[in-house]
Amino acid sequence: MISERVKSNLKQTFAESLLPKLGLVLLVSIVFMALFAPVLATHDPTRTGHYDEQGAPYPPLGHEYTAEIVQDGEIVEVPVEPTSEHILGTNNVGQDVYSRFLYGARISLLVGFLGTGIALLIGVPIGLIAGYYGGRVDDGLMRIADTMLAFPALVLALALLGVFGQSSIHVPDPLVIAGLADGMPESVPVPGTVIIVVALVTWVWFARVARGEALAIRNEEYVKAAKSFGTKDRTILRKHVLPNSLTPIIVLATIQVAAIILLEASLAYLGFSGTTLSWGYEIERGQGILRSRSWVSMVPGIGIVLTVISVNLLGDWLRDALDPNIEGEGR
């Protein structure tokens, strides 16, 4: 399905620019961190109480701050030294920020990729069918899509979460079971409803793009030719319409992964997450202490920014490489 020409285009565009390389390196390292989080983590991310002897959370390495603690009924300011035990410090309930950062990457990527996957599975068939058949089928399906689009994604997601509730599925962590990482949580919470909800607010985009492509492709002469010798609609959709509409859908999918990661962070920030191991949740936790202990919010914030940038850089690369103008005839 991916022709030699497309491959060579991908290679060429990749070689020509620094940005896709940067994006790839970033994304690969974030995926690596997420996959091997239990091995790379230094502490159980959910264990609280990592404070220094004065009872104050640790700052990251190379950073000192003065904490206000209550001593003998009085508020006193005491300097707090970092420790190599917690390289990125601890948060206000004494959890290791570095370990939570690694586990947060898992949630972001899971929601981002699974959410996009489900949105693709819903949106692409609906869009292709609407565009290919046109007429009333199209009118009906696209009015539903327009209705979805009329609501801001975040508001719609909050409403849907209100309907579905927030529950997460606890999936056993193979690395911990294999005994590679002792002392880590034995299961990973997968925020199931959040994944479904982000897919439900995102599929519309795939439906619209797929519809537009199908609308153009159904008038192509190769589709008419296929009809003329009696190919069934289902086969035409699968063999002609889908492969020829994939390029813009793939490009959109990369952009949507980034958008869904941001949406998940927003939902978690607002407290709708289903798990506390989320970057968005962590940002919210650090919000009140942004002046004194900024790292609590800063570390997950940087995580979100880097992930979104890396996905977008790769998306730009795909778009440039798959652009039909560059792809061109006879190249």
Binding site: M1, S3, E220, E221, Y222, K224, A225, A226, S228, F229, G230, T231, K232, T235, K239, H240, P243, N244, E329
Partner: peptide, 26 residues
């Protein structure tokens, strides 16, 4: 039917073998 535009009448993502074989498969 044979169409006018030879650039649009063949699916760009199918080899010509697959294209000619299609009616036989159907």
């Amino acid at each position: 039917v044979v169409f006018q535009d030879p650039f649009s009448s063949l699916d760009p993502r199918m080899t010509i073998g697959e294209t000619v074989r299609q009616p036989l498969d159907v």
